[in-house]
């Protein structure tokens, strides 16, 4: 296995978890109820835990004695491979839940495939993560239904979020050449294979939630190629602040 390709592929997995975890952690202390606050923080904690497993693996693959924190904090913006979806702001609770559900369904299906990977590290991470993610998916899916089938106002808000975030879903399935090489070598099914399942699941939940499936003809992408939204720079400015201001120190 070519380490460079594998590292590139792992960034694609890990950076999604990191950036979404970072976004969710902005909300800690500001949720609509203590119970949702605690639940969203749990999700953030799971995602950051998964991030650490991937980054530790990446750090071990490198020959430069890197640490998980070097990998997490010391890259340039264009070197992060997360999708645009996870960097979208916490505009309101409807956006938070919709972003989460769109990601969770993908994440779950992806981990199902990853569990059968020939790479034992990845297999172990996937087996541990999938239990967490099945809970995330239930949480966000249940809330999507509550908001969609709640009040008129909540329905309007969540429909707006669905419409705005839908354009970011397609990118979840994008793979680079290097990704494809890795998928093939490790015998992991490509995301393309569960794309129609993904949209089926999402559509049936939206229907149950009394929400419309948006008709979108153009999707947004670029995050996976390192071309991010304007939000990303600010996420990194916060996240990297300490490491950039006080380089080479132990915390």
């Amino acid at each position: 296995m070519n380490n460079q390709n594998l590292t590139h592929y792992l960034y694609g997995l890990a950076d999604n978890a990191l950036i979404l975890g970072q976004r969710l952690s902005e909300l800690c202390g500001h949720g609509p109820t203590l119970e949702t606050d605690i639940a969203l923080t749990n999700i953030a904690l799971d995602l950051l835990g998964q991030t650490r497993s991937y980054y530790q693996y990446i750090a071990n693959l490198s020959h430069e004695n890197l640490s998980e924190d070097d990998v997490a904090f010391l890259r340039k913006e264009h070197e992060y491979r997360n999708v645009l979806l996870v960097e979208q702001p916490n505009a309101d609770f409807a956006y938070v839940i919709t972003r989460q559900y769109f990601f969770d369904v993908f994440h779950f299906l992806m981990l199902e495939k990853l569990q059968n990977s020939k790479d034992l590290n990845l297999k172990a991470i996937a087996q541990k993560s999938i239990k967490e993610v099945s809970y995330h998916k239930r949480f966000s899916g249940d809330w999507l239904k509550r908001l969609g089938d709640g009040t008129e106002l909540s329905q309007e808000k969540v429909q707006n979020a669905v419409n705005d975030l839908w354009v970011f879903t397609n990118e979840l399935f994008e793979t680079s050449k290097a990704d494809q090489t890795v998928l093939k070598e490790l015998q992991i099914e490509s995301p393309e294979t569960f794309k129609s399942d993904y949209y089926k699941i999402i559509s049936s939940t939206l229907e149950e939630a009394k929400l419309n499936v948006p008709e979108v003809t153009y999707f947004q992408e670029g995050g996976k190629q390192g071309i991010h939204s304007e939000h990303m720079g600010y996420i990194l400015a916060d996240m990297q602040y300490m490491q950039r201001t006080y380089p080479d120190m132990k915390w």
Partner: peptide, 26 residues
């Protein structure tokens, strides 16, 4: 300081701590 914690380990620990406080409130 959660979004600016200097390492992943510290970020996770701080997030968990603040979450504990929410639990205490509950």
């Amino acid at each position: 300081w959660i979004t600016r914690a200097p390492s992943l380990r510290r970020k996770v620990a701080l997030l968990a701590k603040v979450q504990d406080e929410a639990g205490h409130g509950l």
